[in-house]
């Protein structure tokens, strides 16, 4: 897929927060591309900077943050856009769905009002047309009885239906790029699969690109074209879904794969990687995974490994094990 220009290109993105404990390097120099019509998954444990990455792209960071690097969407440099221009892109060309469908909708507005609102904001259409389009969208996301749904309030619908409504709202203006931050985590296991498949089908129908954030490799296997593995604010491995699943290189990725629950099953995880994600403050040059890694070498605690390809493929990994010049002890 390298022949065309990427739709979304994130380069050397650094998002830091000023906090009481010091500078939190939530996202620390990451690079990745998303091409037209492609689904890229960002995986990693909780606290690895996945949501901060998403919010950086959306341009919705709190005032305590600083952002460096470049985020290019469809030829436009998002980090340089004015507030007003960025607002016009959000919900329109660049859309997002959240983890919590129950709380992401306004409790005192009807579903219909909340769908038509986005249409009226970003498109030049009449209220009547907006309502008609809302009904089509509700049908598109697989909910029946649209006439009644648009008149109902969020608390009258189930979580699964609300997430479908959120998808309808996100897709209202035919976005080129959809970011979904753990869209199924808050849902029942059985509903999770339905919502994922719906997302996947809609993506194929509309040829949009999707950036799906998840900590669940089962989800990744279902929908991803390419995978970005994040750990402690950095990308540690990146490749196609086949590469990641059949030939995982980074010890962290291997750990995640071992910990992978089977999608749709209620079985508890058999394995979890021992230890936890370090606090992203005052990290010394090293591999941040070192204290959890069974292959840890001396160099791992002294220098940060760089993300690079080690053969001719696009499969990249940031681990000293694969550095040719390192003399393995």
């Amino acid at each position: 897929m390298t022949q065309q220009k990427p739709l979304l290109s994130v380069n050397h993105l650094k998002t830091y927060f000023q906090s009481d404990d010091g500078l939190v390097k939530a996202v620390d120099g990451i690079n990745f591309d998303v091409y037209q019509g492609e689904t890229v998954c960002i995986v990693g444990e909780s606290g690895c900077g996945k949501s901060v990455t998403a919010m950086s792209i959306m341009g919705l960071l709190p005032d305590s943050s600083t952002i460096q690097g470049s985020i290019n969407l469809d030829g436009e440099e998002l980090t340089k856009l004015s507030k007003g221009n960025m607002r016009r892109i959000r919900g329109n060309k660049l859309s997002m769905i959240f983890q919590e469908p129950m709380t992401s909708l306004n409790p005192v507005m009807t579903i219909g009002e909340q769908i038509t609102e986005v249409l009226l904001e970003h498109q030049v259409i009449s209220k009547k047309q907006a309502i008609k389009k809302s009904l089509e969208l509700i049908k598109l996301v697989g909910i029946g009885r649209g006439e009644q749904i648009i008149k109902s309030y969020p608390h009258q619908l189930s979580g699964g239906m609300l997430q479908r409504v959120m998808i309808a709202i996100a897709l209202a203006c035919d976005p080129k790029m959809l970011i979904a931050d753990e869209p199924t985590t808050a849902l029942d296991v059985t509903i999770q699969a339905q919502v994922l498949n719906l997302l996947q089908d809609l993506k194929e129908e509309t040829n949009m690109s999707m950036l799906l954030i998840t900590h669940d490799l089962g989800v990744v296997a279902e929908v991803a074209d390419r995978v970005v593995v994040m750990y402690a604010g950095k990308v540690v491995e990146q490749g196609t879904v086949e590469e990641i699943f059949t030939d995982p290189k980074h010890p962290y990725t291997r750990g995640l794969l071992q910990a992978k629950p089977v999608l749709g099953s209620r079985k508890k995880r058999l394995y979890t990687i021992p230890g936890q994600v370090p606090k992203l403050v005052d990290l010394k040059p090293s591999c941040y995974f070192a204290d959890r890694c069974e292959h840890c070498m001396e160099i791992c605690t002294q220098q940060t490994p760089e993300l690079k390809c080690n053969d001719n493929s696009e499969h990249k990994v940031a681990c000293w094990l694969y550095e040719k010049e390192v003399v393995h002890q």
Binding site: M86, R88, I89, S95, S104, N106, E121
Partner: peptide, 10 residues
């Protein structure tokens, strides 16, 4: 839901 209005570019 107020964060969501932000995301929707209202």
């Amino acid at each position: 839901f107020m964060v969501a209005t932000e995301v929707l570019g209202l």
